[in-house]
Design a binder for these strands. Structure first.
Lengths: 208, 208
DNA sequence: CAAAATATACTGGAAAACCAGTAGAAAAGA
DNA sequence: TCTTTTCTACTGGTTTTCCAGTATATTTTG
């Protein structure tokens, strides 16, 4: 009997997952959470958990962080990501944090159950669509979400709000040259040729 | 006994919704679809449908269009939107197309059932979070997603891809002045002061 | 404490965007 | 067929971004 925990901010999704999995005698949903922190508080006192079905977008902390903490606290617990994010960079980031599987929320019931079993069997599992994303040729994609410093995030946010470099400099009490250097660094990190591409990519990676 | 149809691109969500609603004796899920066109083909030959639970993001056509067609074909059929989109402009657009209710996918089971009943009773129903969005003071929000011409959409997409006006002009076989005029019109429609704000807003409204 | 990372700031210049206006042709709609 | 909308293109100019480099100070990390 495999113990399953579900962490997703959508109660309807939790309901759907529970219903699908409970139909399988070998699987038992032992707890569900709609927030990451509540789950992390639950984790140390929990019995053994075979697998966690984990969303990335949670209301309090990121699924990335939750995955990291799961792997730190219970290395044998498998993590299967179920998300709406279909960017290769995010998929790779989750795998790097120790997730054993990834599927999109539009996956079929059969795919879900297959992935759960594959992950429990010690394999890495993807739904068909994620497999297609992972295998298509790389084309102008950043390899991963770039690491941004605190100041860079601040400047990026203000750029996206439509502010000019002069206006940002005034508010942050720095020189316009400083802001221009931050912009340049941001463009290099995202491999963007201009501000439009920068903002689009940042939006795609949920950084705004 | 109320007949319900569910249209959502996520099978897991369909499963969750079905499970929650079937527990209510007055409600019966008579059909489910993961694509808009399949549902629209089904609609004319269907018996009476009291309410359709409809997502906005579908793989083939937009939930906006589906809603419009439902209201044209079966004006008495109620539409309750269940979506991840929390922008006021999108909510208003759905209401304008005849939807009677709107809730986000993070709504609780109780809220879902309450909204279904309220809509069946002839009321307009929102989940608490949507209600909060609808009642908060307007702040720098475009009133609705602006109407874009075919050419404007094309230019917007190319701007977002990082192209310069000169490069766009070359590919579209028009003058750079023409592209600049399109940019200006786009900025006016979105009430954006520069390209960064334009692209951010377009991304927010799922236009990219 | 040293190394690395981050933040800051400047030069000199070119490229691109933004501005506010004007105006005609073509396509679409009533 | 007329009106409206969309697309096209230009003027003359200012503002802003982008470029490639250099360099120092501060903070963080090992």
């Amino acid at each position: 009997m495999n113990n399953i925990v579900i962490v997703d901010d959508h109660p309807i999704v939790i309901e759907g997952l529970s219903t699908l999995l409970q139909a399988n005698e070998a699987l038992q949903v032992v707890a569900t959470f709609t927030a990451g922190q509540a789950f992390l508080s639950f984790l140390p006192g929990a019995g053994f958990i075979d697998i966690v079905l984990l969303d990335i977008t949670l209301p309090d902390i990121s699924g990335v962080e939750v995955c990291k903490q799961i792997k730190k606290t219970s290395p044998e617990t498998k993590v299967l990501i179920i998300s709406n994010h279909n960017e290769r960079s995010i998929i790779l980031q989750m795998l790097q944090q120790g997730a054993s599987g990834y599927l999109l929320k539009n996956a079929s019931s059969e795919e879900l159950v297959r992935c759960v079993h594959d992950v429990l069997d010690g394999k890495v599992a993807f739904s068909a669509e994620v497999m297609a994303i992972m295998t298509r040729p790389l084309q102008n994609e950043p390899k991963a979400t770039p690491h941004l410093t605190k100041r860079e995030k601040q400047v990026l946010s203000m750029i996206a709000a439509g502010r000019t470099s002069a206006s940002i400099a005034e508010e942050l009490c720095v020189s316009q040259f400083t802001v221009e250097t931050h912009r340049r660094n941001l463009m290099q990190k995202f491999e963007a040729g201009n501000t439009a591409a920068l903002i689009r990519m940042a939006a795609e990676q949920q950084l705004l």
